[in-house]
């Protein structure tokens, strides 16, 4: 999928180059983008190291577990009655998302869908969890804040309220859509 998109982007770029003669710009950015990429990776290393270090401390001190226990009423509201394993896995996954763990949230999500797949209403609950993950509700968007600071933003975190409102609304719309689309879908499986 990704390979396909890269090739399409390159084809479009070259076509545009033929149309408006922007060859000079295209070749300049083709040779400069690779060093930008290495700079970006090294630069991201700093903020990711800080955050992953803090998260490891939070996990070892039991803070992450506390937060996920605090989330369990929300989990009950969305997913209905769940067995213990599923509820824990789902809360842990939502916690990882809230803390903005990104890639590190993926393993918790995998554990959660596996548990949900075995429980009651597997299709509906899997869909709900997927939508909650794709809407990415996060308290502290670390990566983007670091990028903003690097590029001269006066207030890298000024976006926090907008991010929260946007991601919560997106999650709500996704959950309602999923709940409607999947209502009654799991009935046959239960009987």
């Amino acid at each position: 999928m990704l390979s396909f998109i890269i090739v399409v982007m390159l084809l479009i770029s070259v076509t545009a180059g033929c149309l408006n003669g922007s060859w000079e710009d295209i070749s300049a950015s083709a040779v400069s983008a690779c060093t930008d990429a290495v700079e970006l990776g090294v630069f991201l290393g700093g903020s990711m190291a800080l955050w992953c270090g803090l998260m490891r401390v939070a996990e070892r001190s039991g803070l992450t577990a506390k937060l996920s226990a605090a989330l369990s009423p929300v989990v009950r509201l969305l997913f209905g009655r769940l067995d213990d394993d599923s509820r824990k896995a789902v809360s842990l996954n939502l916690t990882a998302n809230l803390l903005g763990l990104g890639n590190a949230a993926t393993p918790t999500g995998i554990a959660a869908v596996k548990a949900l797949g075995k429980g009651s209403r597997p299709k509906r609950n899997t869909a709900l969890l997927t939508v909650l993950n794709t809407a990415s509700i996060q308290l502290i968007p670390v990566t983007i804040a670091a990028l903003r600071a690097e590029n001269g933003s006066a207030a890298p975190f000024e976006i926090l309220p907008a991010v929260l409102v946007t991601s919560l609304s997106a999650a709500a719309v996704g959950c309602v859509t999923a709940a409607i689309l999947f209502s009654g879908v799991d009935k046959d499986a239960r009987n």
Binding site: I6, M9, L10, I12, S13, V14, T15, A16, G17, L19, N20, S22, D25, I26, A28, S29, A30, S32, A33, C34, D36, A37, L40
Partner: peptide
């Protein structure tokens, strides 16, 4: 970044 850079600078 090479692909995105080429894409945005081409005017596409």
């Amino acid at each position: 970044m090479t692909a995105v850079g080429m894409f945005t600078s081409s005017g596409a």
